[in-house]
């Protein structure tokens, strides 16, 4: 019966086809690793580990060290975390524990819309609305009150690490708050009731039971946010001021790893310059890859519940 055999072949072919497309995902990741390493090879050979610790980035003399951009990335991302974690978790507590449904749904929706706004629109807003406000209001205030710290000293430019940190904070807030909210909603009510029945207030119940129960999921949310902040490109590029110098002051213009690529990649003429930029892209890829793996593992763990309390 040739007809039947044909159907069988079709059947096999379809399954194989889907597998082929699924494998493409692995091929793409593998391809990224391969081509990025290949592209970065000249810089890897020339500078080795010095690339990570040298502060000299000089396209004319072809000497490249990525330290200022690594610093800019870490400083702006950490600042973003410092701002976004309390805000995001606080908002998640309100949305998961306190808000009545008729407030919860539209507010959660609005916060999720924040995640849909294109990065370049954040950059535009950051450049023309937020940065002038930072220069005129926030930075003078910080210098007056916290100027004894080197972080808050120096002329107020508006654009700089502080501006990048604030924009990144706004951009990772939805990630942190919506993942934390999901995690808190997954905490069984029996846990809350047990604490309330002991005479705990709503806050005590949240702080001592709900948040610890969802702890690893919330940490996962934070790492996910960190991954986004490190790799976030356009908004950071537009508000960080693009300076090749390194300064401790948060008011000072700087560059992130992503922003230096945007600024110089299309104009890089020498092989070594291009390779150095590709190496930066590769480092960025590796770091975000590791953070993402870590975050997903943590979030997955919470979805299964803490050890020893799996329900039948």
């Amino acid at each position: 019966m040739p007809g039947k055999r044909l159907v069988l072949y079709g059947e096999r072919a379809f399954g194989a086809l889907t597998l082929g497309f699924a494998l493409l995902v692995l091929v793409l990741i593998g391809g990224m690793v391969y081509y990025l390493i290949q592209g970065a090879a000249p810089a890897l050979a020339e500078f080795g580990w010095r690339f990570l610790v040298s502060r000299r980035w000089d396209a004319v003399h072809e000497v490249f060290g990525a330290l200022p951009f690594i610093y800019g990335t870490i400083a702006s991302s950490l600042l973003a975390l410092v701002l976004a974690v309390p805000l995001g978790v606080g908002a998640a507590v309100y949305l998961a524990e306190l808000a009545p449904p008729w407030i919860r749904t539209p507010l959660s929706f609005m916060i999720e819309l924040l995640a849909a706004v294109p990065s370049v629109v954040y950059g535009l807003w950051g450049l023309f609305v937020m940065a002038p406000w930072l220069r005129a209001v926030v930075e003078p205030w910080l210098e007056r009150h916290l100027g004894f710290l080197p972080l808050f000293r120096g002329p107020a430019f508006g654009v700089g690490i502080l501006a990048a940190g604030v924009v990144l904070a706004i951009m990772i807030l939805p990630t942190i708050s919506s993942v934390s909210r999901e995690v808190m909603l997954a905490v069984p009510d029996s846990q809350r009731e047990a604490m309330l029945a002991l005479g705990a207030t709503r806050w005590e119940t949240t702080w001592k039971v709900v948040i610890p129960y969802g702890r690893s999921g919330i940490i996962g949310a934070v790492i996910l946010g960190l991954g986004r902040a490190l790799g976030e490109t356009m908004a950071a590029t537009m508000v960080i001021g693009n300076s090749l110098n390194m300064s401790l002051s948060l008011f000072h213009p700087a560059n992130t790893m992503a922003s230096i690529i945007v600024n110089e990649f299309a104009e890089a003429v020498t092989r070594l310059h291009t390779a150095a930029l590709i190496e930066i892209a590769f480092i960025l890829f590796l770091v975000t890859l590791i953070l993402n793996v870590l975050a997903r593992l943590l979030v997955w763990r919470v979805a299964r519940g803490p050890r020893g309390l799996r329900r039948e």
Partner: peptide, 21 residues
């Protein structure tokens, strides 16, 4: 209600110890 619940204890259907403690 918070003060009240300190005077009236409760045990639930399924054991619900706090797993993180």
């Amino acid at each position: 209600p918070v003060l009240l619940r300190q005077r009236i204890g409760m045990v639930f259907q399924k054991p619900n110890p706090f797993p993180t403690m």
